[in-house]
């Protein structure tokens, strides 16, 4: 029964990775921008939540609710004033700008928050678990996974049933023609990045409640997010959830074999998928 347990834990862990990935996927899907600072932004959001917790004494969930609009504004401004200026046919400028942002954010957080490990205290929730017959699962991992499903469901609804989602898809297809419809692609990009930062805040909430975090862990989160996106297939949000689950399962299986292999096993799983299915498991028909 141990392997069933490992499998379930892995899938639930995948929920966290899907949360990391959803914002990345959203932004890439709409503007073909890969944000190398994505992981550091997750850590940044976690610190923001922590500051709210410590300042007002709220619980992490309420604090995240307060941090989310701030992160939206931050993402909106980042896109509006920085990233929009470097978006274009050449992929180099946006990559280098976000890489610079990654280094700047990491070190800025190091100065402000020190290198100490932090955690968002979630009280009894941290150790609560639910008995599901053959396996017992932690409430927190279950909550994370449920949140990932909810986030992806909500994103899909936004994409396919709202005017905003219509604008997202139109701008992604053809920004020039979208502008002939009265849509300003740069404003749409700014909203998309703002929305991505709201998802980042949700990801940060669970990251911070489930494990310790410090300013240096951003890049590794970026890599997990990226792997989930590629495994799932670019542009497929549900695929991203599957991708996250695959990374999660690979990691728990690896860790079961040898604790030192956990991270490595996740990376290897990614490479295997890339080898067998270069376009991911659920590629979009039109690119």
């Amino acid at each position: 029964m141990i392997w069933l347990d490992v499998l379930v834990q892995g899938i639930l862990l995948g929920g966290l990775y899907a949360l990391f990935a959803a914002g990345l996927s959203l932004v890439f899907g709409i503007m073909r921008l890969v944000n190398l600072a994505h992981g550091d932004l997750i850590v940044f959001a976690a610190f923001l939540i922590l500051v709210v917790v410590q300042t007002f004494g709220f619980n992490p969930f309420l604090s995240a609710l307060i941090a989310a609009p701030a992160m939206f504004a931050f993402g909106w401004a980042l896109q509006r004033f920085v990233l929009n200026r470097v978006l274009g046919k050449d992929i180099l400028p946006p990559l280098l700008v976000t890489f610079g942002l990654s280094v700047a954010l990491q070190n800025g957080m190091l100065e402000v928050f020190s290198a100490d490990s932090q955690r968002l205290a979630a009280g009894p929730l941290e150790s609560a678990s639910i008995d599901l017959g053959p396996v017992t699962v932690g409430t927190m991992p279950l909550l994370t996974f449920a949140s990932a499903v909810l986030v992806i469901f909500a994103l899909n609804r936004i994409f396919y049933t709202t005017a905003l989602g219509r604008a997202f898809r139109a701008v992604s297809d053809d920004p020039t023609t979208a502008s002939l419809m009265g849509i300003n692609p740069k404003s749409v990009f700014a909203i998309a990045t703002g929305l991505a930062m709201v998802i980042v805040t949700i990801a940060a909430l669970y990251l911070g409640m489930r494990s310790n975090f410090d300013p240096s862990i951003g890049p590794a989160r970026l890599l997990y997010a990226f792997q989930a996106v590629i495994i799932g297939g670019l542009g497929s949000l549900w695929g991203t959830l599957a991708g996250g689950a695959i990374i999660g399962v690979a990691q728990t299986v690896g860790a079961q074999l040898n604790p030192e292999w956990q991270i490595l096993a996740g990376h290897i799983a990614f490479l295997v998928v890339l080898l067998l299915r270069p376009r991911g498991l659920f590629p979009r028909a039109v690119d």
């Binding site: 219509r166 898809r169 139109a170 297809d173 979208a178 419809m181 039109v286």
Partner: peptide
């Protein structure tokens, strides 16, 4: 727009103005 249905293509024309 290839990602939009016929109706969505029409709707987006009147979305802003």
């Amino acid at each position: 727009f290839p990602s939009l249905s016929v109706e969505e293509n029409l709707l987006i024309g009147g979305q802003i103005r």
